[in-house]
């Protein structure tokens, strides 16, 4: 019951003509505008766009933190939200890793990691701990299980949070700029460790960032979003084969992809900047 179904890949996300308008009867700010996007099972989909462009609204709609105004979102042909059901119910099949980290400071690392399976009543304490220790050992976190989050470096905290998400055998990991606050060296360590984890546990990854290098290094697909309202402007398929490591960063193909994507990102960043000036 606890083993994931390996025969059929899970985690296909279909975003169909989604619109999100905040405060429709008042200021009516359109955050997401007729956005359509297909993400294959086990794909790493990187969403790139300027800050405040509405990427997070999309993530919140998938996670079930916010409703959508129209359109529909499916996970493996199951309707998450759409006609007659504006907001999906948050669930452990779509675990979010938050921008500033959301490990519970009052729980030890081990208790944080076992939280999901225990509150869901999916496994006993012993089973959950066994599984947690196995995943932690894989992630090189074996010796921090009884620490509190505040005692760990931010890089280690992010890795713990990914393990906490994976404990639930999710179909999708939703990451909202998880490495934003890290220095570039730690960040590149995090990228390699995330890929290692991904190779061991194939899940669909929906990853929001505004760092283009990060997007191309990690992604199978990079979706450049337009500035508010947000909709896909350009979708770039990253054909650099897995497994990838930091050597990819200096490869020619990586540079070409950067060039190809850069101008689209730059245009939108400029548009966002100009919009910001107008509002200011």
């Amino acid at each position: 019951m606890n083993t994931p179904c390996l025969s059929r890949p899970r985690g296909a996300i279909r975003i169909q003509d989604v619109v999100k308008v905040y405060d429709p009867h008042g200021a009516a700010v359109t955050a997401v505008d007729h956005c359509t996007l297909d993400i294959a099972p086990g794909e790493i989909c990187m969403i790139v766009g300027p800050s405040g462009c509405g990427k997070t609204s999309l993530l919140n709609a998938i996670a079930g933190f916010h409703d959508i105004t129209s359109g529909a979102i499916y996970l493996d042909d199951r309707l998450l939200c759409g006609p007659g059901r504006p907001q999906s119910e948050p669930g452990a099949d779509r675990v979010v890793v938050f921008q500033n980290g959301a490990l519970f400071p009052w729980k030890t690392v081990l208790d944080n990691i076992t939280f999901g399976p225990l509150v869901q009543g999916r496994s006993t304490l012993r089973e959950a701990r066994e599984k947690a220790r196995a995943l932690m050992a894989d992630a090189g976190l074996a010796d921090v299980e009884s620490s509190y989050p505040a005692q760990l470096s931010s890089g280690v905290r992010r890795r713990v949070e990914i393990v906490r998400a994976l404990m639930n055998d999710p179909s999708v990991l939703l990451l909202d700029e998880p490495y934003r606050a890290l220095d570039s060296l730690t960040k590149s360590m995090m990228h390699e460790s995330l890929l290692q984890t991904y190779y061991r546990n194939k899940v669909t990854i929906f990853f929001i960032t505004h760092d283009l290098e990060e997007a191309i290094f990690l992604g199978d697909k990079v979706v450049v979003m337009t500035s508010r309202p947000c909709r896909p402007k350009k979708i770039v398929t990253v054909d650099i084969p897995h497994p990838r490591d930091h050597n990819v960063l200096t490869s020619r193909r990586f540079r070409e992809l950067m060039d190809e994507t850069m101008s689209a990102v730059h245009e939108e960043a400029q548009a966002a900047f100009a919009a910001g000036e107008r509002e200011g």
Binding site: A63, G64, F65, P90, G91, A92, R94, V95, V96, F98, A102, F104, F115, G116, V119, Q120, R164, N168
Partner: peptide, 9 residues
């Protein structure tokens, strides 16, 4: 939000 994501009632 994290708690709800992880399946907490």
């Amino acid at each position: 939000r994290a708690a709800r994501c992880l399946g907490a009632s």
